[in-house]
Amino acid sequence: MSGMSPIVKTVTRWVSPFILAFGIYIALTGHLTPGGGFPGGVIIAGCFVLLTLAYGKEKVDGVFSLKSASVTDSLASLSFLCMGLLGYVFGRGFLNNFIQSGFPGKAFELLSGGNMPIINVAIGFKVGGSLFVVFAYLALFRAIEEE
């Protein structure tokens, strides 16, 4: 199976960047508008799932590899933890919102949330990476068809 029809491929090619951008936007502005890291992450995963479905699973190994997805996943988790540990560095507790308390931005603006947008994006990539990885494994898992 090498993907769907050219129409789908073309549409996907045009739409997927916007979906990705929307996902990141949802994750980034989670503290201001409805949304947040979890839906944003799922949308990011959905973008890649769409690409995989449209272009066939061979592309999964080629263009956006599984390895990079898992690395993204792990790095995002790690950065979440690091944000938590940085709270200690700034003399506060674990996972303390040290940026917000230290350098408060204007309310209702992106920077007002302190480290919330950062963690949100980290969660977004974490969720997106792991969900894409599990989808890709399900898609690549061909044992049944081979039998």
């Binding site: 503290h31 917000q100 949100n120």
Partner: peptide, 28 residues
Amino acid sequence: KAGGANVVNDILLDFRAYDTLGEATVLF
């Protein structure tokens, strides 16, 4: 205290960030 207008996200990422970390672990 948290700086976000979306209170749900304030809870998730600031007040109860431990829960979120645990949730990420469960998902992982």
